[in-house]
Structure formats: structure tokens, C-alpha cells
Write a protein that binds this DNA or RNA. Structure first.
Lengths: 282, 282
DNA sequence: TAATTATGAAATAAATTTTCATTATTCTCG
DNA sequence: CGAGAATAATGAAAATTTATTTCATAATTA
């Protein structure tokens, strides 16, 4: 955890003087990283040793080390603050803003992912008899991409972006099947129903959605991808990119789990595409 | 710019001794942030004042300040280092690596994009009678996503991921039509042919591909997205995410060009989806 | 009221920066 | 081309700044 968050969290376990330091730090961390221990002590109206003790309490080696950690916390928090696209932006400006907020979303999404859950999802996927990916709208794109990835693994895999096909497929699922339902909001009625149907038919349901959404409640495993959707001009942007990165993670976990021999197989699939391409001349 | 990059950039403007320091820092920045100036000087076999001068040369106040900057560079994800997924990585490790290299690719892609070309592409798109998106494999996903975005704009737009349909559609195109052909390598034969056909039938062809590829030579406008595809375990990963971000950029440019009234329209599309959703309770 | 804990003044220790003399490098002109 | 002046680079040691420890006192709790 980052030091700033830690300070905020443990605020009530501090002593009176320590809390004074904490407050000064929280109110302007950017200043603190350039201040000496004496300066900070003075600003908080307490003595230098108290600041030092405060630093150690936070599992840092001392004041300089604490400043290092603080600097890193700041670096993680500040880089890409919300940069909204503006009416009068030039192409260069809005391009930069979109790329930056996409990167910021990925950063956020990464933090929100739980490695244990990913592990379980990979477990389940590697053992599946059949894998289905369902999504609608922007999430259909993600499901489509997942199909592209997993089809190379030589596992029975299907993808539907049509409500009726999804329903039929869900109803026909059985024990050993895995159904991955993708929906950023987790509120799309028909997808929630599909998840329920699949679960009722003994499939394992993995949801790529927001924690606590109606969809998440129907899933056996919930991969929650948090992103701030504020760049969106009424269109899903960041969320689907974070979801795609998650698909990459699952696919990677899958191949790692399957071992080396399996990866030779992937190479074969790739080589088989060669004849449809123009040769590279370099 | 971050200090690490700066050191790497200015490596040849340094004096002999300064370069020694630089090399030590670049080889293990993580250690340096915990070392004293004396320790670093010793490791680089130079004197302490030299380290100090080195720090000031990089526009920092002195050694402690330099360490702060260095710590922040490191916190930002060490973009320049390639973090390959390893056989024995834990879920947490490969997740981090994938997200990080995805972000690094986006950074790279952004730098490779030319705002003028984007502007021209947006121009052409806003004036199109009909827009078609073609891609195969991983790029089909990108085309699919583009369809999702552009369909909201109330412009005739189609998407095909089937070779025959693409050919037929290309042959039927006419002046005023825009065909967007997506292929990371730009070497997929059938797509190059589709681009040629479309151009022969007076459509404007926009290529989202690599500069200098066979496909790029058939296009009127080339949006080149450079990414280092080295994370890929025989699967396209970063490239398609960069392409998707580019689609976001084009879609954003499109809406900005169309003005405010047009955006009200987008809101309507979004509202029309509401009834298919579970209401949010908060 | 005793025991415990928190705090700060002063002393000590550590680290950084400055000063200045020495050494290396570059440039100039015979 | 090379001697020597000018300039730049470097490090030893001193000075300064900064951080830490020690220990006595004050506040809090039992």
C-alpha cells in the first residue's frame, strides 16, 4: 500500500502529536517531500524526534526513507489526472488526452484486480470442457477478442453477441463448461439472465463486470475492473480497454498454466497463417 | 521528463566520471534510491562531489532531491524497461507485467501518431457518405469496435470480418465512401487486395497499419501505430489496444467536428438503452 | 499514586555540500 | 606539430546541514 493511503488509514491509531504531523503531510504532501525534518517538525508544531518516530511507525527506515516513499506515492497518484476533452481541443490535444486517460484507467484497473481471483479464473478456464464468451455492445468487442485469443488454445470456445444465441447457449451448458459474461455496468438485463441460466445449468460463470452489480451476484467468480469512465462522451472507452487487458492476462495465465509443450502449439497456429501474408523483406 | 529517461538521453553529454555514475544508476536505480551519496560514489569509483555535481546537472537541488526524482521515476512504472512474462511468474506478477507493457505501448503509440494525419482522417470521416471498417483476426475486433462507436453517429457504417463480404463491399464502394482497413502488420494479402479494390472504385482508403507496409502503399491516408509487440506470446496484444485507442481518438475527433447539437444526439442513443438495464439504486 | 507512554532538548552521528588545491583536457600560437 | 596557457574536471578535506539517539520530563492511563 502507498504511504499516503496508509497515513490516511491509520490516522486514528496515531498519538496526538503524530496526528499533527499526519495532517500536515496529508494537506500538502508535495511540499513535505522537499522539507527537512526540522521544517516539517516546525510546521506541525512538534519536535523532530516525533517526526522521526512517526516515520518509523509507518515501516520506513527514517525520515529520508519516508520521503522517498511519499514521493513514490505522489508519483503514482498525480501522473494522469482527469484530462477532459474540451470543445476546442486540437487534434494533438485530444489525442494526448485520450491516450493519457486510457493509460490512467489501465493503472486503476490493475490496482483493482485481485491476483487470487485471477488465479481461480485461470484454474477454472484451464479445466473447462467448453468456454463461452458473451457480451453486448462494447463488451461484445471484448468477447470477440477473447474468442480470438482462446481459439488458439485448441479448446472448444464460442462467442455470441446476439441475445437469443446467448440464451440458447446458456441453457445448453452443463457441468464442466465455463461461461464468461462481460458487461461493464453489470446491469444489462438480458446478460444477467444469461448468467443465471448458465449457473442453473451447472456451468461455472465468470463475470467481468463491476463489483456489486446485479450481474456480479449471479457469478461464481467476479473479475471486477474498476475504471473511471469520465472521458466518455456517452461512449464506453476506457472500460473496454481495461477489459481487453484483462483478457490478455487470462490468456497469458492460461498458457503459463498449460506449460511449454502447449506453447509450441501456439507457434504452429501462428505459422499456419504465414501463407496468407506478404513476406517481410527485411 | 522523468529523470531516468533524462539520464539515458543525456548519457553522451556527461563527462567521464559522470557517465560512471549514470551507468551505476541506470543499472540498478532501485538500489540507488536507498544509497547514500558516499555509497553511490564508492560504487561508481568516483568522489562524492562528483555525484553531487551530477545531480545538479540534471536540474535537481542536490543528491537528496535527485533521489526523490529518481524514486518518482521508478514509481511511474519504469516504462523503458521491457518486462517479459516469465515461465514462473505468479498471477500477480504477470498481471502487472501485462498491464505495464500495455501502458508502455500506448505511450509509444501516442508518440508515433501524427496529429495532422489524424486531422485529415477526421475530415474525411466526417464528410463520408458511408464508412466501412475491415479487419481480420485481432484487427476484426478493432473494426467491430469502430462499428460500435461510429454507428452512434448516425452515419451509414458497416463492418465485415469476412473476406468475401469485404471484397464485395469494396467493389461496391463509390466516390464519397470511406473504407478503413485495419491490419497491424499490413501484410495480410486479402486485406491489401480489398484496399486496392476500394481505391480503384474511388473510395478514400484509410489504413490503420504499420508505416511502409504493403497495405500502407494502397491507402490514401495511413494512420501508423507503432508498438513493440514483444510481450506477445504469439498473440497480438498491445497492437490492438493501441488501435482501439486510436479509434477512440477518431471518434472523439468526429464528434468534436460535428459540434454541440450533434452530441445531444449521442445522449439520445444512450438514453434509448436505458430500459434494457437494471436501474442503479444509488 | 505508580506505571506506562508520549514528548522534546540537547548531544551525537550521519550525510551532504562547499571550498579549494590538484590534475586532466582543450585550445592557441609560434 | 608541440609547448604552454586557459579551461574544465575531479577529489580531499572542511564546513554545514540534516537526521538520529539519548535521556530527562511531562502527560496519560490504570
Amino acid at each position: 500500500m502507498n504511504v499516503l493511503e496508509k497515513i490516511a488509514n491509520e490516522l486514528d491509531t496515531f498519538s496526538k502529536s503524530e496526528r499533527k504531523v499526519a495532517e500536515v503531510i496529508l494537506s500538502s504532501p508535495g511540499t513535505v517531500i522537499h522539507a527537512s525534518i526540522a521544517a516539517l517538525a516546525k510546521q506541525a508544531n512538534i519536535s523532530e524526534p516525533t517526526v522521526n518516530r512517526f516515520c518509523r511507525r509507518l515501516d520506513t527506515k527514517g525520515y529520508p526513507d519516508f520521503k522517498l516513499h511519499l514521493a513514490q506515492s505522489l508519483a503514482n497518484g498525480t501522473p494522469y489526472v482527469n484530462r477532459h476533452v474540451d470543445e476546442n481541443d486540437t487534434a494533438e490535444e485530444y489525442t494526448d488526452k485520450i491516450f493519457e486517460s486510457t493509460m490512467a484507467s489501465l493503472e486503476l484497473a490493475r490496482k483493482s484486480l485481485d491476483a487470487n481471483v485471477i488465479n481461480r479464473a485461470v484454474d477454472v478456464l484451464t479445466q473447462a470442457n467448453k468456454v463461452s464468451f458473451f457480451g453486448l455492445g462494447a463488451s461484445a468487442v471484448v468477447a470477440h477478442d477473447a474468442l480470438n485469443k482462446f481459439f488458439r488454445f485448441n479448446v472448444p470456445v464460442v462467442y455470441f453477441d446476439d441475445i437469443l444465441m446467448q440464451r440458447m447457449s446458456a441453457i445448453n451448458s452443463r457441468q464442466g463448461d465455463v461461461v464468461v459474461v462481460i458487461s461493464h455496468t453489470g446491469r444489462t438485463k438480458s446478460l444477467v439472465e444469461v448468467a443465471t441460466l448458465a449457473k442453473e445449468n451447472d456451468a461455472i460463470v465468470i463475470g467481468i463486470t463491476t463489483e456489486g452489480s446485479p450481474l456480479s451476484k449471479e457469478c461464481n467468480i467476479v473479475l471486477s475492473v474498476d475504471v473511471a469512465e469520465d472521458t466518455d462522451l456517452y461512449m464506453p472507452m476506457s472500460s473496454r480497454i481495461a477489459q481487453l487487458a484483462l483478457i490478455d492476462v487470462l490468456a497469458t495465465g492460461f498458457t503459463l498454466r498449460r506449460g511449454t509443450k502447449f506453447r509450441d502449439n501456439l507457434k504452429k497456429v501462428k505459422d499456419s497463417l504465414r501463407s496468407s501474408r506478404f513476406e517481410r523483406k527485411d
